[in-house]
């Protein structure tokens, strides 16, 4: 089918349950599939998928629940994640590679190495992280389709 400008923008939302490791990663898988169907360049799909995966895992590892919104424009892709949970005390510190508040249990599963947020920053063109302690965290990032 011919892709026209009118297709965009469109959006999808996904609910993520904190602590539910069984299906952790499935939202990222769906996001990837949607972008693949839209035939975005592989490098763009990879970057969005990697960032989405890290963000999804963060909600599952640390928050009670969250909503992930995928916004698809013809020239950029934006993902926003809002969660309800403990929030982040020091956002700058959380961005530091290697810094983690993960429990030993989470580390033993192979998560919580303190690389997630810096991974997101590295693969996206823009990233914003804000948080209110004991309320929740808002993360959004954007990947340009043509750079």
């Amino acid at each position: 089918m011919e892709q026209t400008e009118e297709r965009y923008p469109f959006h999808n939302t996904f609910r993520i349950e904190g602590g539910n490791f069984t299906h952790a990663g499935s939202v990222s898988s769906q996001v990837k599939r949607i972008l693949k169907e839209e035939r975005f360049p592989n490098s763009v799909i990879r970057r969005v998928s990697i960032a989405t995966f890290e963000a999804e895992m963060n909600v599952i590892c640390y928050a009670h629940w969250g909503i992930l919104t995928l916004l698809v424009f013809s020239d950029f892709i934006k993902v926003a994640i809002d969660d309800e949970g403990p929030g982040i005390h020091d956002v700058d510190q959380a961005m530091t590679e290697g810094f983690s508040t993960a429990s030993d249990k989470i580390r033993e599963l192979g998560f919580g190495a303190g690389m997630g947020l810096s991974n997101i920053k590295k693969v996206t063109d823009e990233m914003v992280l804000t948080s209110v302690v004991n309320q929740g965290t808002h993360l959004e990032f954007m990947v340009k389709v043509f750079s």
Partner: peptide, 15 residues
């Protein structure tokens, strides 16, 4: 040696 289902999702996400 990561034995979580997430390793499969990761593999999918990055081809």
């Amino acid at each position: 040696g990561n034995m979580t289902p997430q390793v499969i999702y990761t593999a999918d996400v990055v081809d």
